[in-house]
Design a protein around this nucleic acid. Structure first.
Length: 583
RNA sequence: GGCCUGGUAGUUCAGUUGGUUAGAACGCUGCCCUGUCACGGCAGAGGUCGACGGUUCGAGCCCGUUCCAGGUCGCCA
């Protein structure tokens, strides 16, 4: 007989009645009835009920919840069946029980408890090895494994090859802060952990690899968000040579939609629309619109900015029509208005109801002529309501986007159990910073649309890039670009953002040099693995799909990282701490 | 870094206008119980009320400072 188990805890059924079996697992629950007791024995796959009769009472006295035990016994049919579990028609009468690993410490929280207690997250993180025994999160990690498998299968099917790139590399000029690693062999010099394998994958294209991918760890020293893991995260990084934007979007569609179709519960909308960046901002007030939300933002500046109403004068005015919104109370609009002012930084929120004419905060300013234009423009009808946001050009769309999301939530307009995707394309190449300086908007490696011609002859702020995001239900799932592989265009593009040729050579030394040796046009993207798993698992917090996540302050509460090191270690890497920062 | 919310038993929480010995549920320990599966019954242990300072005759509660945690904005090409 096997040493620890002949079966898993999910597999014994009526078919096995009469068999002598051996099971091993965790003690999830002991129900002691005096001269007999029941144990729910759990392993990763399921639960089997063990019956302990009077003669084994002494040897089982020591068994505690969450200990690991091995049970030898016979499978019998239950007198009273439990149809809630797969093995509920049988039980195992124990003949011998061995404690394999005793749980002899008070548990910091209950595991798989029926109580609906949400345990404090920092405690869960400190005892993650116990938290991961909880069914819900355990299943998330199993799901993650299945998703990773599918991602690899899909990429392999499309003839991408997996190549690993360095973790210790040089500090890069990309956007986020680097994690630095001091060099022992080279005093005063540092490695950096890659924010993404960006330059490596481009160099692989120069090296003649046709299609590369990697499930790559990426490191960025930035503050986390609910949907953003602090410090480290994984991307399905890929790059293709002799490829266009369409080629990449096709790959993204294939790998992402197939993965969602295979693993997600709910409908996967296979129609992936392409929305130009400016249109997305105009209609949704966001470059990652949630298409499950039916509300659309309309620009009504030309109709309303001439009203007597001073808040609209010389402002951009955005409107959102709420179908059948006239039934909402004044209180509803007041509450919404409060939210918009306090949370979104708007100056106010105007609203109108269309019921027997116009009602609402700005009704008295609307002349019949304006009313006709307005209703025509936004397609409003009787019983609808409209809210208005007026602000500067830069803020109006963003605030309207926030109102759109909040209205969707408050009116319960967001479709359930469906995944709606879109590509956001045509991102502007440059943006104007707060200081009035022209910066790269997104990714300095991307190819400006129109190439050298547009770089030389256009207003920089009008130049679009071959740059794209894939968005699902309001989350940015992937980001990519056709890369700028032309040295001359690159120099010019960087010149506009205030970099000299020497800067470029210095910052992107290897890449820039490589481009002078015959470079294939290439393009790629990088879907965020954690976020894909989060969406498929239906979680709103990314830490629920990561086995050992860091907390909000980027600490590993279980391993106690980061932590102080010995003076000897510091000396070896030639680091002296500022005295004020020593702990 | 800004703003918001929270920190009371092992866990999740309640705690009245500032007033006797700080409570409940689950968990834990002991005893009883042969058909439970959210087992049941009885008894019990378990608290620096995050920390420090202040106001007060008296502080879990009010004030200040600080630490920790979560959310959000900045940030994340």
């Amino acid at each position: 007989m096997q040493q620890y188990r002949t079966h898993n805890c999910n597999e014994l059924t009526k078919e096995n009645i009469g068999m002598q079996v051996k099971l091993s697992g965790w003690v999830q629950k002991i129900r002691n009835l005096g001269k007999m007791k029941f144990i729910d024995l759990r392993d990763e796959l399921g639960i089997t009920q063990i019956v302990i009769s009077d003669d084994l009472q002494d040897s089982t006295k020591e068994i505690t919840t969450e200990s690991t035990i091995m049970v030898c016994g016979e499978v019998v049919e239950r007198q009273s069946k439990n149809y809630k579990i797969k093995t509920g028609e049988i039980e195992v009468i124990a003949k011998q029980i061995n404690i394999l690993g005793k749980c002899n410490t008070v548990l910091p929280f209950e595991i798989n408890s029926n109580e609906q207690n949400d345990v404090r997250e920092d405690l869960r993180l400190e005892y993650r090895f116990l938290d991961l025994r909880n069914d819900k999160i355990h299943k998330n990690i199993l799901l993650r494994s299945k998703i990773l498998q599918t991602l690899r299968e899909e990429m392999n099917k499309m003839e991408f090859i997996e190549i690993q790139t360095p973790i210790l590399t040089s500090s890069s000029p990309e956007g986020a802060r680097d994690f630095l690693v001091p060099s022992r062999l080279h005093p005063g010099e540092f490695y950096a952990l890659p924010q993404a394998p960006q330059q490596f994958k481009q160099l692989l294209m120069v090296a003649g690899f046709n299609k590369y991918y990697q499930i790559a760890p990426c490191f960025r020293d930035e503050d986390p968000r609910a949907d953003r893991s602090p410090g480290e995260f994984y991307q399905l990084d890929f790059e293709m040579s002799f490829a266009t934007q369409d080629d990449v979007l096709k790959v993204l569609e294939t790998v992402i939609l197939n993965t969602f179709r295979k693993h997600a519960k709910g409908t996967v909308d296979l129609n992936v629309s392409r929305i130009p960046y400016l249109e997305a901002i105009e209609k949704y007030g966001s470059d990652k619109p949630d298409l499950r939300n039916p509300l659309i933002i309309e620009d009504v500046t030309s109709i309303l900015s001439n009203l007597e109403f001073r808040a609209f004068q010389n402002k951009i005015v955005k409107a959102i029509k709420i179908p059948n919104g006239a039934s909402q109370t004044r209180k509803f609009f007041d509450n919404l208005s409060e939210y918009v002012v306090e949370e979104l930084g708007a100056k106010g929120l105007a609203w109108l109801k269309i019921e027997n004419g116009l009602n609402g905060s700005i009704a008295k300013f609307i002349t019949p002529c304006v009313e006709k234009d307005l209703i025509e423009k936004i397609g409003a009808k009787e019983a609808d309501a409209v809210v208005f946001i007026a602000d500067d050009k830069e803020k109006a769309s963003k605030i309207a986007g926030g109102v759109r999301i909040e209205l969707g939530k408050r009116l319960n307009l967001i479709e359930k159990d469906v995944f709606r995707f879109c590509f956001i394309v045509d991102f502007p190449m440059y943006e104007l910073s707060d200081e009035g300086i022209i910066n790269f908007n997104h990714n300095p490696f991307s190819m400006p649309q129109g190439g050298m011609e547009s770089i030389l002859n256009s207003n920089p702020l009008d130049i679009l890039a071959f740059q794209y995001d894939m968005v699902c239900n309001g989350y940015e799932l992937a980001s990519g670009a056709v890369r700028n592989h032309d040295q001359d265009v690159m120099i010019k593009a960087f010149e506009i953002a205030g970099y000299t040729k020497e800067d470029v050579e210095k910052k992107f030394g290897a890449l820039f040099k490589a481009f002078s040796y015959g470079t294939p046009p290439h393009a790629g993207a990088a879907p965020g693995v954690d976020r894909i798993v989060m969406l498929i698992a239906g979680e709103e917090n990314i830490r629920e799909v990561i086995a050992f996540p860091k907390n909000k302050k980027a600490r590993d509460l279980m391993m106690k990282a980061p932590s102080a090191v010995t003076q000897k270690q510091l000396d070896e890497v030639h680091i002296a701490l500022k005295t004020s920062e020593k702990k």
